[in-house]
Design a protein around this nucleic acid. Structure first.
Lengths: 340, 340
DNA sequence: TTCCCTTTGCAAAACGTTTTGTATCTGGTG
DNA sequence: CACCAGATACAAAACGTTTTGCAAAGGGAA
C-alpha cells in the first residue's frame, strides 16, 4: 500500500526541480534541459515507477485524454464488440482512452449519461448505433466534438461513418452472378431503415448492370430475424420456378433460409446458393456449409470514428465528412454454380 | 462555444462564496448553510447548467469515480455486451463510470493498458474474462482494488464471481430427466477449463441422484464449436441404442447437434431432445425449434463485480468473497418426452 | 448591556501537474 | 578582464474543486 509516487518525488530523487522533470519527460520542443539531465530524470522516473497523474495534468491542460462512446443496446448485439474494440485500438494508439456508456432506448438515461461524460471532461464523444440508422443528435452534446458511428443525421456539419450499403449488396449479388446464376431472389427487411433501401438498391443495380430481369415474385420482405427469413424462404423456394440463389438481408435471415432449404430437401449450394450480409462469425461460421457473406466493417468504422474525432480535436475547423466504408466479400461454402 | 460554467460563476450569480456553493451542492452532513441559501444556490446552479468538473474534484478528493474494466477478447464473443452492461449499470447507480480496455491475448499490451488506467487514477478495476477460466492476476494491479469477473485465481484474498457450473449442468440434466428420459448423452468440451469439469460433474451428479446408469459410450468430447458438436452428435446419434436426449456443453455445440440430427433424419424434440448451456440468444432463438438451454448470468456477474468493488472501496478491509451465481433454465422447444 | 453559544459565511490551502517568467551558470569574444 | 548571449534550471502561478480554520452575525440568558 505504498503511496503513489509523484513528480516531486522524482525531482527529489534526481536532485533537480519539478520543472525540469516535467520538461525532461514531456521532452517538448524547446530544449530547456540538457540531454544528460533528461536521461537522468527519465532513468530515475522509470526506476521509481513514476506515472503522471492524468487528473492533474488534465486539469492543467484542459484536456482529459478521455473519449466518450455512447451507444444504444450493447447487450443484444454481437456487433458492439468489434466497434468498441476498433474505437479503443485507435484511441490507444493516440494516447487516449474510451469511456463507454449505453443507455438502451431510454433517452432520459442517455442524457444523464452524457452529462456524466461531460463532468469527466471527455474531449469528445462518439455517438454510436449498433444498427445503421438515422438519428437525432441529443442537444446535450452541443459544443462537444462529436462523430456519428454507424448512423447519420441531417446536420451536415457532423462527421459520420456508415457502411456502404449499396456497394455491399452489389458485391454480394455480383458474386452470385459471377457464379452463373440468373434467377436470383432477395429476402429484404420490412423495416424502413437505410440498410433496407441501400441493399435493395444494390441488388437492383447489379441485376440491371448484367441485363438480368427483376422478377417481383423473387423479391420478398420479412422480419430481419431467423424466423422471418425462414418463412420468406419457404415461400420463395416453394415456387415452381424458384430462384437458384438467394441474397439475404442479413446472416440471421440467411440462417432462416438454410432452415427452409433443409425443410424443402434442397441442398446448399448444389440446389440453392445463399449469400448473406454481416459476417456474423458466430452464425456464418457455424452454418453448414459455412455462409458466404459480405462483412460489415464494424471494427474499421470504430477506428475511423475515433481517428476522425481526434483529428477534429487536434486540428479544429476542418470540414465535416460523411464517410461510407467498403464491405468485403467473405467466401465460405454457400455459393456455388446453379443446378444444371 | 460558450466557456464551461464553473463553481465561481455559480457563486457570483448567487451572490455567495465558492465555499457556500460547494456546501450547498454536496449538502454533506454538517449543516453549514441555511436551507434557503441552499435552495437558492441549487436553483442558480441548475439555471446556469453547472456541472462540477470531476477532474478537479477527483484531484482534490483523491478519487476519480472511475472504474477500469480490463478484459480479453471482447470482439469475438457475444457475452461481452451483457457483462459490460451489467458492470456499467451497477456503476451508474452508484455514481461511477467505467473505462473499458481490452488487450486480446497480448499481456504486454494488457500491462500498458492497465498502466493507462492507473494514470487516470481509476479507483479500482474489474479483471474480466469472457470465458470462465483460471487466471494469474497481473502484478500491475498490485495495490489497486481488484475483482475477478468470470474468472478465478488461487489468491483467496481477491474476490471473484463465476457461474455455478455444476449447478447449471444439474439444472439442465434434471430438466431432461423430468421430461422422462433415461438414456441421456453428453457432448462435453475437450479443453481443460473449469466449465468442462464443472458441467461434467453436474451431469454425473444428476444421473446418480436419479439412479440412472452412466453409459460411457454416451459421453463424448469435442471442440466447443458448432463443427465439433456436429461431429460428436453424428457419432452419438448414429449408434443403435442412441441416447434420446443430448446435453451439450454450449449452445454452439447444440447447434452442431441440430445439424447432425437433421442430417440423420431425426426430428427435434420428437426423436431426440437437445439442451444447451449459454442462452446465447442469437443462436438459441434462431434454431428451429428454439433451443432449451441454461443461461449463464453474464449481466448479473457484471453487476456483482462492480458492486463488490465499490463496497471494497467505500469500506476497505472486508474479507474477500468467491461467489458463484445461479444459472436459470430457459425453456424453448427442444426438450420433449422421449420417443415411445 | 454584556457575555457566550450557535448558526452561517468566507478566505485560503491543498490536490499534482504544466508553463511562464526570471535567475543562474557557462564559455566565447572584444 | 569584462561583457554578453545562449543554455540550463528554478520558483511561482494556474487549472477547478473541497475542506479546514476562523470570523461575523444572530439571539438568549444573565
Amino acid at each position: 500500500m505504498t503511496t503513489r509516487v509523484g513528480i516531486r518525488d522524482v525531482a527529489k530523487a534526481a536532485g533537480v526541480s519539478v520543472t525540469t522533470v516535467s520538461h525532461a519527460l514531456n521532452d517538448a520542443t524547446s530544449f530547456r534541459v540538457k540531454a544528460a539531465t533528461q536521461q537522468l530524470v527519465r532513468d530515475v522516473a522509470r526506476d521509481l515507477g513514476y506515472a503522471p497523474n492524468k487528473m492533474a495534468s488534465g486539469l492543467r491542460n484542459q484536456r482529459s485524454q478521455i473519449l466518450g462512446l455512447v451507444s444504444d443496446e450493447i447487450t443484444t448485439t454481437p456487433f458492439a464488440g468489434a466497434m468498441i474494440r476498433g474505437a479503443q485500438d485507435a484511441a490507444y494508439d493516440r494516447g487516449y482512452v474510451v469511456m463507454v456508456v449505453n443507455s438502451g432506448l431510454d433517452s432520459e438515461l442517455e442524457n444523464r449519461e452524457i452529462n456524466m461524460l461531460r463532468q469527466h471532461q471527455v474531449d469528445g464523444v462518439v455517438y454510436a448505433r449498433m444498427y445503421h440508422q438515422s438519428v437525432q443528435v441529443p442537444a446535450e452534446l452541443e459544443g462537444l466534438p462529436t462523430v456519428l458511428l454507424d448512423s447519420v443525421t441531417d446536420n451536415r456539419s457532423i462527421s459520420s461513418v456508415i457502411p456502404d450499403e449499396v456497394a455491399a449488396a452489389e458485391t454480394a449479388v455480383e458474386a452470385i452472378i459471377q457464379a452463373g446464376h440468373t434467377r436470383i431472389g432477395m429476402i429484404n427487411n420490412v423495416d424502413d431503415i437505410p440498410a433496407t433501401h441501400g441493399r435493395r438498391e444494390g441488388f437492383l443495380n447489379a441485376l440491371r448492370r448484367h441485363g438480368l430481369e427483376h422478377d417481383p415474385r423473387h423479391f420478398v420482405i420479412g422480419q430481419p430475424e431467423t424466423a422471418g427469413g425462414r418463412e420468406a424462404a419457404l415461400g420463395l423456394l416453394g415456387q415452381p420456378d424458384r430462384p437458384t440463389a438467394l441474397f439475404c438481408f442479413s446472416d440471421r435471415v440467411a440462417m432462416g433460409a438454410y432452415q427452409a432449404a433443409t425443410a424443402l430437401g434442397l441442398r446448399i449450394p448444389q440446389d440453392v446458393s445463399i449469400v448473406g450480409i454481416d459476417n456474423l462469425e458466430i452464425i456464418a461460421d457455424a452454418l453448414w456449409p459455412g455462409l458466404t457473406t459480405v462483412a460489415l466493417p464494424h471494427y474499421e468504422m470504430g477506428r475511423w470514428a475515433v481517428n476522425r474525432i481526434l483529428d477534429d480535436i487536434e486540428n479544429p475547423g476542418a470540414p465535416a465528412a460523411q464517410t461510407q466504408l467498403e464491405c468485403p466479400l467473405i467466401e465460405r461454402g454457400s455459393l456455388g454454380p446453379p443446378p444444371s
